[in-house]
Amino acid sequence: MSRDTVQLEILRYDPEKDSEPYFSTYEVPFNDDWVVLDAINYVKENLDRTLTYRWSCHMAVCGSCGMVINGEPVLSCHTFMRDYGDKIRIEPLQNFPVERDLVVVIDDFVEKLGSVKPYIVPKVEKTVDEGEYIQSPAQLAVFKQYTACINCLLCYSACPQVGLNPGFVGPAALALAHRYNLDSRDVGRAAREDVVASNPGIWECSFVGACSEVCPKSVDPAAAIQQTKIASTVDYFTDFLTPWRKQ
């Protein structure tokens, strides 16, 4: 099958001119080696310089080029043009306000991410002179998959509960909370529970599992959240049955 050109239908929105977003169609050359991001770059360089979108590394590491392509949230640098038909529909990530064209506002996510304390809370703070916090490979293996998150927000775009319940802390932030809870060097779990085990935390998740299906880094946030639900439920009943142990 040989194709000369492909039509890109790209969602456009200029906050200074448009009352609402609309689709514009651009004809770009078909190239077997191009990812969709290359085709979008072609539009920017040759057809419409006003087209606005985020990208940086072009190798699925930076997490900035997440878009919804033919209805599916993907990294546009990680998705080949040849895997689509003659028309490719490109939209900004779902469940975020559209700043301009394919750029979304992620302030809300950044705030949620910070709220789960995504850093090591050590039992005793060490100075640089006192050395590292030692960890064995086996202790690392317990949480390693959850460290792979690049904050690309495909999971927030895929998760229907994020859209239906805007307060929901969401997949990536909860997976990262789980990552630090599982870390042998960390004692911050109880402090994280205030957000994680609240109603807008894990309990807004209904285990659709879409987050894990679209994750380009196989982080599996859905698994992290279910494990957190089980651990928090055990906590809840332990506190209830043995109130004298509560601090």
Partner: peptide, 23 residues
Amino acid sequence: MSRRPYIRPVQRSTWWLAQPRYI
């Protein structure tokens, strides 16, 4: 430059028809 982010509406009762995985 004025910021005026556009919030796309969520289909409250029919969202699950959008993708086979939601169905």
